[in-house]
């Protein structure tokens, strides 16, 4: 048990160190973009004003309000102090909305879209990979390669094709958004129906892209396990083939959990393009508007969330593995 604790202690230290570096980069990098977003907010409230000293004064007020008149390191500590209290500041591009308010509206859409899509894609991919390894034939020669082909599409290509086929040609799916633009979110049947029909294209585009990669991983793991020595030995002990196949797929599945955890961790960043192409109002879209609007506070907050999710996913993975896979546990104890 001792080696165990030491292992996790070391791991957590490393994760904390990574988090610190990432937080600094998340803060600094957006602010290195050229341009002055404060000036553009100031200019909005100065519409029509031509007096130069008045302009100067208002600009200075905004700069002081956002703290952009201070040195970068000072800004960082102020931001960090506030962030630790849950205050992520005000958005530049959607001024005067709070960043936390914008995120709170966007995150549920992202989770509702991507979590099920990634899990469904992962499950289907693993089932397909297992079937391809065990039954071979058409699954191995045609179905899996087809999904690998589809999976290698860039997300925007996939979205464009789907929009073209289902929205423009067949006219069975809407082109953009999460619900009809003329509706207000309520629990009404019309609204729910609209949400479901808007859900289909972004959902299936993510599922389709996920299947191939997970499938090919599962296939090679399963083939490796099917040829393992324990398969032959178990057979000669009289154990039934279907039971042995159970051992094989369990063992092949365990490393695949890495794939799932990584997709979940990177889901926001990884599938941002899908959200953008379908104008889905999740974190991906929010990030896009933050980048185009030079919205440092919003951008830093988005990247911070992504960083934390990736780190949590990795750490969780490590801990879960230690529990469910004795092969990994044995390594961790060394």
């Amino acid at each position: 048990m001792k080696g165990y604790k030491k292992y996790y202690f070391n791991k957590i230290l490393w994760y904390l160190l990574t988090l610190v570096c990432a937080v600094i980069l998340n803060f600094v990098l957006p602010r290195l973009m050229p341009g002055d977003p404060v000036a553009s907010i100031a200019s909005q409230s100065l519409a029509g004003v031509t007096d130069a000293t008045q302009v100067q004064k208002v600009y200075a007020e905004y700069a002081a309000k956002f703290g952009t008149d201070r040195p970068m390191w000072e800004q960082f500590f102020i931001w960090l102090g506030n962030a630790l209290h849950g205050d992520l500041g005000q958005s530049f591009s959607q001024y005067p909305r709070e960043v936390s308010d914008i995120l709170a509206k966007a995150i549920p859409w992202t989770l509702a879209l991507q979590l099920p899509a990634i899990i469904v894609g992962w499950l289907l991919g693993n089932i397909l990979g297992a079937i391809a390894a065990y039954m071979k034939g058409v699954f191995d020669k045609a179905v899996l390669p087809l999904f690998m082909f589809i999976g290698s599409f860039p997300a925007f290509g996939m979205a464009t094709i789907m929009l073209y086929i289902f929205s423009l040609k067949l006219k069975i799916a809407p082109t953009a958004g999460a619900y009809g633009f003329d509706l207000i979110p309520t629990m009404s049947w019309t609204f729910v129906k609209s949400v479901i029909s808007h859900y289909q294209l972004p959902f299936w585009s993510i599922v389709l892209i996920t299947i191939g990669g997970q499938g090919i991983g599962m296939r090679s793991m399963a083939i490796y396990e099917l040829n393992a020595d324990y398969v032959k030995y178990s057979r000669f002990l009289g154990i039934k083939d279907n039971k042995i196949v159970g051992y094989v797929f369990r063992n092949a599945m365990l490393p695949q959990i890495t794939g799932l955890a990584l997709s979940l961790g990177t889901m926001i960043g990884g599938n941002m393009v899908a959200e953008m192409m379908f104008s889905y109002p999740g974190l991906g879209m929010t990030m896009l508007t933050a980048v185009t609007g030079q919205d440092y506070p919003l951008l830093s907050a988005c990247t911070l969330i992504i960083t934390i999710m990736v780190l949590i996913a990795n750490l969780a993975l490590e801990i879960i593995y230690g529990i469910i896979d004795p092969r990994v546990k044995a390594q961790q104890q060394d």
Partner: peptide, 25 residues
């Protein structure tokens, strides 16, 4: 053969016993 012979009439020890057992069980 599987049910009645293997294991109780005639048993086998494989050459590569290192990996002979399911590692996760």
């Amino acid at each position: 053969v599987r049910k009645h012979i293997l294991g109780n009439e005639i048993a086998y020890i494989p050459q590569a016993a290192m990996n002979a057992m399911n590692p996760t069980m």
